[in-house]
Design a protein around this nucleic acid. Structure first.
Lengths: 141, 141
DNA sequence: TACAAACCTGACTAAATTAGTCAAGTATAG
DNA sequence: CTATACTTGACTAATTTAGTCAGGTTTGTA
């Protein structure tokens, strides 16, 4: 299973972006400073987010990024997919790698990992960016 | 988040063990052959399972391992803990690593990852070994 | 028009982790 | 007494991660 900094940063950055979305586009530099994420790394991440139509970029002075949809329409699943964070619990799925063809009794636990994958993805399907920004602005103290 | 082969193998091996538990102890060699897992790797894994009282070992000729409890009492959470697979979604938890102190607006997504962690752990708390062996013996075809 | 802010792209890499291997045991049933 | 099986710990090749680095291109504003 993969869920690494890239995915986490993507979500953090977009939550940040959602908070400041109203007025100007938000520059990566600002996000970098506020969230403590390397600018270069952010660029990699946003390149993918843009390709997946989650954000739009505005070039030139005072440019930056804006969300391409309403925060409520941006599911976490979308974000994580965009940055190639696959929540894969089994490898034996893609092409029958050794140790997992259903003919033999091998890969006894195949169903289990499938269920887990569904369980986790359900979580990411349910949550959207809006949920996040509500959550944080409240839980500050 | 971590969920790697070690955890997967541990679960597979124990499911296999549960299937053959009734009569003799089961040797790691057998499990290795049936599940296609390296014997040496299995030894590492079972050493930990034993330390955590999930299995008992029986030495000597025809020795091997047996479950230490009824399969229904062995939760997946127990197994994964035993082999050090922590399902941790945030690092910023242990000691306030940079980027996550609740004073600033950083780590906006902290709550989210906490929720995810709970969500996943719930799954592992619910499932036990018995569930697994029922599942597989049925879904064979 | 100049120029700086900002986006954009791809190659590269140090560090960590994974998934084992290898070697050298110890214990015990038969 | 010896083959079988467990036990322990050190070691390592390959992969992945989390970025860095270098060199662009684009465009708003003065």
């Amino acid at each position: 299973m993969k869920l690494t900094s890239k995915g986490r940063y993507a979500v953090m950055a977009l939550a940040d972006l959602a908070n400041f979305n109203s007025v100007h586009p938000v520059s990566l530099r600002d996000i970098s400073l506020r969230q403590g994420i390397s600018l270069d790394f952010l660029e990699q991440i946003f390149s993918k987010l843009k390709k997946n139509n989650i954000v739009k970029s505005i070039r030139g002075t005072n440019g930056g990024y804006i969300l391409n949809k309403d925060p409520v329409q941006i599911k976490l699943a979308n974000i994580l997919n965009a940055v190639d964070e696959e929540v894969k619990t089994v490898q034996c799925k893609k092409e029958s790698k050794k140790g997992c063809n259903s003919k033999t009794s091998k890969c006894i636990t195949h169903n289990l990992w499938d269920e887990l994958e569904i369980h986790i993805n359900y979580f990411f399907e349910k949550k959207n960016l809006k949920d996040l920004i509500n959550n944080t602005s409240e839980s500050r103290n």
